[in-house]
Design a binder for these strands. Structure first.
Lengths: 233, 233
DNA sequence: CGATAGCTTGAGTAGATTCAAACAGAGTGG
DNA sequence: CCACTCTGTTTGAATCTACTCAAGCTATCG
């Protein structure tokens, strides 16, 4: 569903993907899925739940560099990198599937178009990283928070997990703070501001957007970096 | 030279690359090379000079998301993305070469290994973006600046443009500030601090590292994210 | 019902910004 | 050769955003 949102995938390609995937047991929340430096022989596809990439610092702080939702590969880049430079962690209970790198090698040898589709996928990941750099470097805490909620709204819409106004977001404020490069206390305060401005509600792990246009304006959100327009084959 | 630092490239693969490259006229400093949204039919290789990727904000501020040095593709990701979500600009006079996307398509069809090498290249770009997210989100201005100088030192060493202690860095403090997500004024002040601590000198566009270990300590610099170890074929 | 995780509030502080002005060096023209 | 301009660097003072540390609150769960 995620691939077909942006590309034409033939039945043969779909079969190649399906036959390459191995089921993997579900993991509970706060499970470390991949550690930096460990040698990887497969890439992991997230079927359900929310996961993240993060890097930690000497003093115990961490920076989450990307959030993942259903349909995302957590580490398609490990196919070429072999070892990651960051952690991957389940933030909520997650369902996973594995794609062995041997199968990915076969895909690069037999399915050039599918190879480009997967390469495209890692490039969209990089585009998200760039947009987060802009948030972290130049946007106010309020704007960063608004931007994050807008991004998740669009990404969840693609896979049918948001209707554009409501979606499940069972994260803590501390986890969101780790995405935004701020402290949990400050995250709480800017969250209150978004609430007071009647832009959204967030309780019980469920986010309700009350004013989508104004939220996008506050977050300076332009979804172009998510590359949603369908590409020609 | 850059590819061979991390991979084994056969003579046949080298020939395929060389025959795909087209020369392009040199551009002066401050030239916009690629604008967001424009349709691209080739990727640009930087042969000499310093360039950057940046995104601009409504209020005129900008965030540089990556610096590029000789040997880097400025937009290898445009092969799969077709349009970029950011600007690419020459910060110093730059020499460029072009690789048509048609040639890259041929490579994905005829040279699976070389395809993985190029895919790897875009994944290292993403790793740099992640490390910058950590700098922007969690490191102090002093630490960010030290980290940037360490990163450039290593990346320039790979292509023979740094001996590990000295390298040319003909940028302005304002440009560096745009990398670090701070103001030029603050960049100037933390620059003074690095100088007072006798970690480095930077004048006349030339950087001299006086205490590499301490600089790396201040910047919490670990080059693992640059993936320098040579990979097996 | 107490324990716990997560959220909220307050007061004081630190890091970075803003705005303004001064300074240094390189290049230019009279 | 000197004055002039321009770009980039440096300095100072006031301000603001976000941080720190601490405590109190609230909902959930066993």
């Amino acid at each position: 569903m995620k691939l077909r949102a942006r590309d034409e995938i033939s039945a043969e390609e779909e079969a190649a993907i399906r036959s390459s995937l191995l089921p993997r047991a579900a993991v509970p929340a706060d499970t470390t899925i991949i550690r930096p430096g460990e040698e990887l022989r497969h890439s992991t596809l997230l079927l359900d739940g929310i996961a993240c990439r993060y890097k930690d610092m000497r003093d115990g702080q961490r920076q989450i560099t990307e959030l993942h939702v259903a349909g995302d590969f957590l580490d398609l880049h490990s196919f070429t990198l072999k070892r990651l430079d960051h952690f991957v962690m389940a933030l909520t209970p997650c369902k996973l599937a594995l794609m062995p790198h041997t199968k990915l090698t076969e895909i690069t040898e037999r399915h050039p178009h599918l190879t480009r589709v997967y390469w495209f996928g890692t490039n969209v990941d990089a585009a998200v990283h760039r947009e987060w750099e802009v948030s972290l470097g130049r946007r106010s805490a309020l704007s960063r928070l608004a931007h994050l909620f807008c991004e998740l709204n669009v990404r969840l819409e693609i896979v049918g997990l948001s209707d554009g106004m409501y979606y499940d977001l069972p994260l803590t404020q501390a986890e969101v703070a780790d995405c935004l490069g701020i402290t949990p206390v400050h995250c709480n305060r800017v969250m209150q501001e978004l609430r007071e401005r009647k832009l959204l509600e967030w309780k019980g792990g469920r986010l309700s957007i009350l004013n989508r246009d104004e939220l996008a304006r506050v977050g300076e959100f332009d979804p172009a970096y998510l590359y949603l327009e369908k590409r020609r084959r």
